[in-house]
Design a protein around this nucleic acid. Sequence first.
DNA 1: TGCTTTGATGTAACCGGTTACATTTCGTTG
DNA 2: CAACGAAATGTAACCGGTTACATCAAAGCA
Lengths: 332, 332
Amino acid sequence: MTNIRKVAELAGVSVATVSRTLKTPDIVSPGTRDRVLAAVEQAGYRPNLMAVQFRSQRTRNLVVLVPTIANTFFARVIGGIQEAAQRRGYGILLCNTLGDERAERAYAGMVSTRQADGLIQLRAYDPFGASSAEARPPMVNACEVLDEAPCPTVKLDNRAAARAVTEHLLSLGHRRIGMIKGPRNSPLTRDRLLGFQDALAAAGLAPDESLWCPGDFTLRSGHRAAGDLLSQSEPPTAIFCENDEMAMGALRRIREAGLRVPEDISVAGFDDIAFASFCDPSLTTIAQPAEDFGRVAVSLLLDVIDERDEAADQHCIMPFELVVRESTGPSA
Amino acid sequence: MTNIRKVAELAGVSVATVSRTLKTPDIVSPGTRDRVLAAVEQAGYRPNLMAVQFRSQRTRNLVVLVPTIANTFFARVIGGIQEAAQRRGYGILLCNTLGDERAERAYAGMVSTRQADGLIQLRAYDPFGASSAEARPPMVNACEVLDEAPCPTVKLDNRAAARAVTEHLLSLGHRRIGMIKGPRNSPLTRDRLLGFQDALAAAGLAPDESLWCPGDFTLRSGHRAAGDLLSQSEPPTAIFCENDEMAMGALRRIREAGLRVPEDISVAGFDDIAFASFCDPSLTTIAQPAEDFGRVAVSLLLDVIDERDEAADQHCIMPFELVVRESTGPSA
DNA sequence: TGCTTTGATGTAACCGGTTACATTTCGTTG
DNA sequence: CAACGAAATGTAACCGGTTACATCAAAGCA
């Protein structure tokens, strides 16, 4: 193991001079500098970053808690996080939590124990629980955010987006609109449901809970829920799914029932994942700037870490766009 | 910052006793142990893992280089890596390289500089280049592997799998079979092409390079390549795509051309991603144990890190399975 | 010449654990 | 009671950088 002392010996200088040559070359005389750099080269010296981190009490790593990496939307968010972090010289420690709060708390401990400088949580759960405000490690909550988040947040106006989708369906003449929801207890699902109801109320329609089906954001759950809706005595003429995976599951189930989309029934999704524009029929959905969620989250987190106070309580609302494709059409 | 010295003072013992109480409680007398644990509790002490890692020269982190996290197959592999690493007490530092060799070498440097104990590379590129055999940091190459990998590997017998798909198409009577390939220079693509040719040769058919289209594993490239194949004067009656994303892009393009799958043309994919069984028509494909790739890679890597020599040169071949669904049918 | 200033470099403390070795305590046995 | 061994605990070196402070030489100035 070549360390700084070996290099110092090789160059005939002190360890301080070696350190200075690498960190602040301008305060070292040119002659010494060259000798040190030659010694570094000769010894194949790479500073031991563990020592550097230990000394500076900074790891330049960020923990990212993701409910499930298999979800393509989260994959895009992570891509954005990774890119932004890399550009700022940070690495990301990825933790696939599968929504397990015990695992999330364990991973959050990596910040408390100095294995990472901060944490990005993509789910509505605070892994630091009742830590006193003083002791709270740097954290940012993105995508699915807590209502009273104790940290900066990055989210979509899910209520407005869901309302926009619903209004689109209403404008096509649909009056019986089914909904395939996400997991209960999720603020995200609650907000999308509220936006859905907002639109119905504005159109003078009474909410009909028999048309709301639970789901869990997977293809399979969308498939099953669509089956439940179709088997009702008076099935809906349109289905709003809280994400694209469930919408694609629903498309499949509808086809299996011998019905056509959108002629017999319309389907709308949420997220605009890559598959949304390639499936059959292509999906009407809400496009979100997934990568930007990640980039903004990193930016806010580094502000907190560096104690740039202006960021202490920032809450970003990201823009969305209704993308109308083939899966929605006039009510039969 | 509460550190071990504060706790020692609080408990009225030496730092060594505190350390021993936490690491090897059995060699500390019960009375002292209780006093120390009470002090730990009272001080809210959490050991600074940076210091522990620094001292032990182990970070218990693994770097994972993934070409693109947006690919659902890799997402599954990463899920397996994450799960296995977590179970063994390791964290994973995820690096989305987008195939950029400069970025890969930079990330690989995290191992050389002791920010991580080892590296899993999911692409056929050796980021440590010409490092002498002695100095090579622990590494495992999985999924797309180098031909002469200087480390343990985990891969599929891509040639045999491609041959199985092709034989399936041949058995349905197809004689003009198109192929949508992955990126050139990829051993994975080369092997799948070889398997494809093996099957054709065994059936007494001459290879026809005009039916081979380049792609890059994205939906879009499959879409474009399928367009190229369909516009030929004598289009193929079946298309074998080197992954499911491209196959789904092809499905879309074929539908846009007013043709039906599998009545007019058959399509086969590779990977069996979640969407493969939900798209329309569902995809005939090769199922791979994606999560197992990750688990095995972690296991081999930890063997190398812990210098269990038996693993030094292991090359695992993972099993595959041909899954026949709706997208392939008899030749017209 | 003598004194101060500036620039370059060296010395050693420090970060917070771990652990080899030294020391103390205590029980056991002749 | 002395002597010994085992168990419990303390002391301090150590990991590999960083950096405050000390030191020293050379230059500037009266």
